[in-house]
Every structure is written in structure tokens, then in C-alpha cells.
Amino acid sequence: MENSVKFLTETVLRISGVDPRKCMKCGKCSGTCPNYDAMEYHPHQFVSMVEKGQIEKLMNSDSIYLCLGCMACVERCPRNVAPGKLVGAVAQLKLRQQDMNRKGGNDVAAFADEIVPQQLLMAAMRKYRK
């Protein structure tokens, strides 16, 4: 599979349907994120990094598995940008590249320490179960 910045960016934008140029950099998504501290890259960074084409960094970060899929950032974004959809799209892109380190259901269980909310496990099982 192709891995050029252009290809990856276009794919993420196509899958998510998100236009990162609409972002006014208010940070409300990150202000509202319930799993902010666990994530290496925060919702607002997903938006600006996708815009800059830094998809591979995002794909290789655990942040894509740590998104709870609660959609609070999507719900509250004043500019209709939907950062949560970008996280989902990057995760999906990663998933499609089967030979890369895709997390299976068992790997997700390894995340299950007390700081990880239950909701994450539920979301992960939904997303990554075989």
C-alpha cells in the first residue's frame, strides 16, 4: 500500500469527511476530551497534524486507540470540524494496513489498568474485535 504523505492525508480526509481548514484553533475539543491525559496527541493536534500531513506520526501513536469514541469533541466543536472522526479515520487507515502492528482484542485487554475508563474498552472491542 502506498504511504506517501499525499495519499495518507487524502485517505484520512476522504474516510472522515472532515475539512481541517474549518478549524479556528479554539481548543474546545481538547478542553472537552475525557481521556485527554492518556493521549499523546490531543484532539486539536489531530486536526492540525492532519492538515500538515503528519499522518504517520498519528498512525504510530497509541492515541488512536485511546480515543473513547464518546464524540464530545464532535458534538461541541463550534466550527463543525469533528476531530473525533479524524481519530477514527487514522485508526481505520492503520487497521487497513494489516501487516502493520494492528492491535487485536487481546492487546486491548493489556491496556486495562485502572486509569483506562471502561468506556474505552467497550469502544475498542467494538472497533477492533475480529
Binding site: 484553533k25 481548543g27 474546545k28 475539543c29 478542553g31 476530551c33 485527554y36 490531543h42 486539536h44
Partner: peptide, 11 residues
């Protein structure tokens, strides 16, 4: 009040 502090990259 929970919000983001974008300059220090913190919630």
C-alpha cells in the same frame, strides 16, 4: 471548569 490551555498543551 474544564478547558484546554493550548499554549502549554495541557488540559
Amino acid at each position: 471548569v474544564r478547558g484546554s490551555d493550548l499554549i502549554s498543551n495541557q488540559q
